[in-house]
Amino acid sequence: MAATRDGYGQALLDLATNPRVVVLEADLGKSTKSLHFRKAHPERTVSCGIGEQNMLLVAAGMAASGYIPFASTFAIFTERAFEHMRNGVARPNLAVHLCGSHGGTHTGTDGSSAQSIEDLAVYRTLPNVTVLHPADDVSTRLLTMQLADSNSPSYMRTARNKTPVLYDDAPAGTIQIGKGVVLTEGHDVALVACGVMVSQALEACNMLASEGIKATVVDMHTIKPLDGVLVDELVKRCGAIVTAEDHSIIGGLGGAVAEHLSSTSMAPLERIGVKDRFGESAESHEMLEMMELTPTDIAAAAKRAIARKR
């Protein structure tokens, strides 16, 4: 078990060999895990205080001067600076990499004010912005490292709490921005998940298997650009898709897949996500139950999707 935010912190340390990489913080480096970089490289770390709007545009100014800025705070607080991201970063296509940690209801007992359930949706609407939500610390580290080579901005959501490590033994090249990862192969239904919901989908896959239903599980860590080629393959292979995310059912991974299918396929789609409501203070597992994001919920959705196949 490990938290994706730890993978982010490790990646920043690894990236420090590139002298153009700089880190920006808004007083939450201990939480987002940029603190490791700050300790090792204080001269390349910029404290912006509790001021997210300023942080985004300071990062933009540095990007326009040839630096590669990684800025982080809680996912929810990045949203305060949405217009700065839109007009100051995405529009001029400056390669600022924004990381929102503590995303989703899985964040837990801090309560609804801290549980961003709309971040993936809002950043997905911005031209030029790559949107990532990795499932484990290993993939978070690899994806963050790849961002440093990108010429366009990004938003990555990480999670506060620990989830199973999925890619400890994965061969090199498994994790690539824009490419979903097929974790299990089955022909009855495809479970397409991101972030903390990937391990939930794997559990759902096991539950379905015990009933003789074979599922393909995909880690769709890149929400934008969506791996439409893979989605089309899943339609061909399985004929039914379930998406699963710790995020509003509006506009996130489910929304992205629905948009894609609307012009390519009549395949049934069931979306597991937060049903247009706010959370409350509770432990991670309690939140997943309350929001109907458990393996049981995913398995039930899989059966509904299968039943809708023509």
């Binding site: 700089v22 300023n54 985004l56 545009l57 933009a60 100014g61 540095m62 990007a63 001067s65 700065h84």
Partner: peptide
């Protein structure tokens, strides 16, 4: 927004 951007440019100049 511009003052923040200018601050980023100034920081970059100093780092350079």
């Amino acid at each position: 927004m511009g003052l923040s951007f200018g601050m980023g440019a100034a920081l970059a100049a100093r780092m350079d």
